[in-house]
């Protein structure tokens, strides 16, 4: 049983939480402008590492708030817990964030809000 430290409630058993899968997947802001294959990467393709994984968790049976965890998928060791909207701070967490193919994907590029142009 994992003991997970909810940033809002403290340590609780894993059965109080649900896992939301890969973290930091940004929705393309201009989804009608990108190709099907780029959209497919956003919608379906998933990082599934044997090692450090950045994932979203929700304290479903507690405060019901979401946060991120950097966890090893072999040992299940939790390296870091950080708030939504942040990126990891530990060396392992940072490395996993940078190494993810998504950082250079078209879908992620399309998630940055386009500059408004005057008509």
């Amino acid at each position: 049983m994992l003991k997970i430290k909810c940033p809002y409630c403290g340590y609780r058993n894993e059965s109080e939480f649900s896992c939301g899968g890969e973290a930091h997947i940004a929705r393309p802001a201009v989804s009608n402008k990108i190709t099907d294959s780029a959209f497919c990467e956003y919608l379906f393709m998933r990082e599934n590492p044997k090692g450090v994984f950045l994932e979203r968790w929700c304290h479903t049976s507690g405060c019901r708030r979401w946060f991120n965890i950097a966890r090893d998928t072999v040992s299940h060791e939790i390296y870091e817990i950080y708030l939504m909207g942040n990126t990891p701070k530990t060396v392992k967490g940072k490395k996993a964030y940078q190494a993810n193919w998504r950082r250079t994907s078209k879908a992620e590029a399309a998630s940055k809000t386009p500059k408004r142009t005057k008509k």
């Binding site: 049983m1 894993e14 059965s15 994984f53 998928t73 072999v74």
Partner: peptide, 13 residues
Amino acid sequence: DKYNSYAQTGSWP
């Protein structure tokens, strides 16, 4: 199980 893992054991709940 509800989270990704490569440990061939599984979680207790």
